[in-house]
Design a protein around this nucleic acid. Structure first.
Lengths: 336, 336
DNA sequence: CTGAAAGCGCTTACAG
DNA sequence: CTGAAAGCGCTTACAG
């Protein structure tokens, strides 16, 4: 089962290897009759170009890097599914770089190292996933010699391509909706750790509250269930709001669990809304009302944007460099 | 920021590029003084070998493919974390192939296609993740021209390298333990869809029940929450066991939720045990007792095995071709 | 429309 | 211990 090479198909077709290469890369330059004959032979022999050779010769590898900071959250898995499906359709392969800079002495050095590896690996573009973008990260991104699209984050510079969800608007909308239903005492529960996406949610919440002349109350809490339960207990032993909007649905479920131990009736006395709409929402009792963030579609769109960028299909379409994916609200049992 | 090449460092060091290549690949063949000088220059210039060229010249790419069937389940994400960490330590890069054969007319053809892509991409080895191994899949694996290790599955042929968890023993042990606590009416709830890992759990359960002279009762149910709830309702409206062992903790949580709507007291009247120990277990009320399957460690071990195989460090150590990772039981609130 | 040839950036026998 | 040279399997101007 030795790998068949371009020479083999050239031989079998009675043409030079240049012609075979052409039917693969510039079919329009080959006479249809020849082309079809060669295509048939390629199929018969099961020829697949060696990617290393192709990459070296053309300095295009038709592969894209996904850079992720840890892969623990299921949302990232779902996003990668979307990326992979789109990649396959568009003919790209994927490299995976997991960015375990966490708790390193020099996180930025380590990030620079990683970018070095990514570039040396010869990818044509990168999908950059990072909830905690700093200016230093951005600099590295701008310096990169390949196309990069921010996935599930945005940055202020409109020249940096990104695909994200309009978290500000989502939080604003849901807050406003709950206000319009007559609620005044609405809290926002966010993660202690600074994640850009969560900051955006807080921003939208604050805006809606201020516009309504209401006092915003933002409560930072650990993202880890084992840790946030104690905080929730402390808070709930004093008081609770009419509505709690929580930046992640797992954190919302945990909040519900603790609230119920205080005998607080959900949704009668306390309504809870989460973000993300993972399976936690459906396994929770009562079932959690959520902002649904279509993370698969987000991955797909990001890969699509990147492909267009790499293939220079954007033209003057600088407008669409920063795309936003629609969210929607899934009403369940934790709201009235 | 043009990429620096091996010529550049050779020039800067006043040696031939062969020598630079040697310090990278066979440092012991280079005089220490020269080696150190070159290493310093490599660092200064930030030289990273072009992987395509390296791969082409040496027919070793120091990259490994991960083949996954969809990436939706969070367990796979956690496994990939373990793989990635180990890969980094061992100096390997990762390619990701998502195997979306689902619902295709000719799944095996599509699988063959995929293997073609994987091999053509020039990886040195593959980590093969697939819960639904058939003989046809196995044939493709055996035919592969690179090392393959089955990750989180086993096959009967002891010559096929794998890293898994001893699901038979885990299920056997927990069943036996519950029997020894005086329970007789113990059910096993499994997935309707045939997953090898779940079949193994059922096997262990059956064995323990039979040994104790008890009647096994295996109930197949959908893995999807929206679908299994109806089944659970139907079953529980008739009767319920003393203990239910459920092959996945998300399915166990869903079972608990429905049982509670029937007023069944957990764990007083019904004890529930899950497999996997994801966050569902801790977000559930009561908190779920679980077989903890260390999926991160499993990923690590699989990558480690593969690396040893590729680097031929196994020697005659054919014994350890099929590794099993230890599990343990996490007792929580759904058992007495 | 097609072929001969140079070149992509490395590695590795082979001499020395 | 080191260098000159061939070769890995492709792509792509350049001729024709």
């Amino acid at each position: 089962m030795n790998q068949v090479k371009i020479y083999d198909v050239a031989g079998a077709a009675g043409v030079s290897l240049a012609t075979v290469s052409r039917v693969l890369n510039h079919p329009e330059k080959v006479k249809p009759a020849t082309r079809e004959r060669i295509e048939k032979i390629i199929k018969e022999l099961g020829y697949k170009p060696n990617l290393n050779a192709k990459g070296l010769a053309s300095s295009k590898s038709t592969t894209v890097a996904i850079m992720v900071p840890e892969l623990t959250r299921s949302s990232v898995a779902e996003m990668i599914n979307g990326i992979a499906d789109c990649a396959r359709r568009r003919g790209y392969l994927l490299r995976l770089f997991v960015n375990n800079n966490r708790g390193q002495e020099a996180p930025i050095e380590s990030e620079k190292e990683l970018w070095g590896d990514v570039i040396a690996s010869g990818v044509d573009g990168v999908l950059y996933i990072n909830d905690e973008l700093t200016n230093e990260h951005l600099e590295l991104i701008m310096e990169a010699s390949v196309d990069v699209v921010l996935t599930n984050t945005i940055c202020n510079d409109p020249g940096v391509p990104s695909v994200s969800i309009d978290y500000v608007k989502a939080a604003y909308d849901i807050t406003k909706e709950m206000i319009s239903r007559g609620n005044k005492d609405i809290w926002m529960i966010t993660s202690m750790r600074k994640y850009m996406v969560n900051d955006l949610k807080v921003e939208g919440y604050n805006k809606a509250m201020q516009e309504a002349g209401l006092e915003p109350k933002v409560i930072p809490v650990s993202g880890k269930t084992e840790l946030n339960e104690a905080t929730y207990r402390e808070i709930l032993s004093k008081s609770y709001p009419e509505v709690a909007i929580v930046v992640r649905d797992s954190m919302a479920v945990s909040f519900i669990n603790i609230a119920r131990t205080f005998g607080i009736k959900i949704p009668e006395q306390l309504q809870v809304i989460g973000f993300q709409n993972t399976r936690y929402a459906v396994l929770s009792r009562p079932k959690l009302t959520c902002i649904n963030t279509p993370i698969y579609e987000l991955g797909e769109a990001a890969m699509n944007l990147l492909t267009n960028l790499m293939e220079e299909k954007m033209g003057e379409d600088v407008e669409n460099l920063q795309q936003l994916i629609d969210y929607n609200i899934v009403w369940r049992e934790t709201t009235k």
